[in-house]
Simulated scan of single mutants.
Amino acid sequence: MTQPLRYAINVTLDGCVHHEAGLPPDEQSMAFWTDELRRSDTLLYGRATYELMEGAWRRPESGEWPDWMDASEVAFSEVMDPMRKVVASGTLDSVDWNAELVRGDLIEAVRRLKGEPGRGVSVGGVRLPATLAAHGLIDEYTFVVHPVIAGRGPRLLDGVDLRLELIERREFRSGAVVQRFRPAEQD
């Protein structure tokens, strides 16, 4: 039995997925993302996403969370910080923050990772998930669609041809909509 590989990301109405697009996080969205983290044992990132997440959510050496974080952001950080992280990178020499580096055959490495016991692997970012989706390795897609037109930035799964089946939909007070999909059965 393999553990599921899940991709979840914020996206604007025009398909942009850069981290500055969309609505600012609020208590409801942070609670959602914290619960999403809890569904997995392992986080799988490429270099850029790993560095972005580490810079924002790693517990500082002082042990104290920064003053800019509200309670919902602290809760998110406290779940993410101790989680196992796997980083796919051909440019990094080393990683820390409970992380291990994956080099070489990415597809085979992800297949091995999925074969390990656990609740699931959560993949984040833009390019890495597109590669994994193109190889049919993602078992579930969660898009939090924000009522915003960004007009610029990387696009969601650009260049990937997928048919998805909606398995869950819910709305946030902000107007953002969570849509959860699984790959559709091919005829």
Rank of each mutant, 00 (worst) to 15 (best):
T2Y: 08
P4A: 02
L5A: 03
L5F: 02
R6W: 00
V11I: 13
G15K: 01
V17E: 01
G22V: 09
E27S: 13
E27H: 05
F32G: 01
T34I: 08
E36Y: 11
L37A: 03
T42H: 04
L43Q: 10
Y45M: 15
G46D: 12
G46Q: 08
R47P: 10
R47T: 11
Y50F: 13
Y50E: 13
L52Q: 15
M53L: 15
M53P: 10
P60N: 08
G63S: 10
E64L: 09
W65A: 14
P66Q: 09
P66I: 05
W68Y: 11
D70E: 10
E73Y: 04
F76L: 11
M80T: 04
P82M: 06
M83R: 00
R84M: 14
R84S: 11
K85P: 09
V86E: 09
G90R: 15
S94I: 07
N98E: 14
L101K: 00
V102I: 07
R103Q: 15
G104N: 07
L106P: 00
I107Q: 00
R112C: 02
R112D: 05
K114P: 04
G115C: 06
G115M: 11
G118Y: 01
G118I: 05
V121N: 09
V121L: 08
S122L: 15
G125P: 03
R127H: 14
R127Y: 07
L132S: 04
A133Q: 00
A133S: 02
I138W: 00
E140C: 05
P147Y: 15
V148E: 15
G151V: 02
G151R: 03
L156P: 00
L157V: 00
V160Y: 00
E165D: 12
E168H: 12
R169T: 15
R170P: 03
E171W: 06
R173V: 09
R173L: 08
R180S: 15
R182A: 13
P183D: 03
A184W: 10
E185I: 04
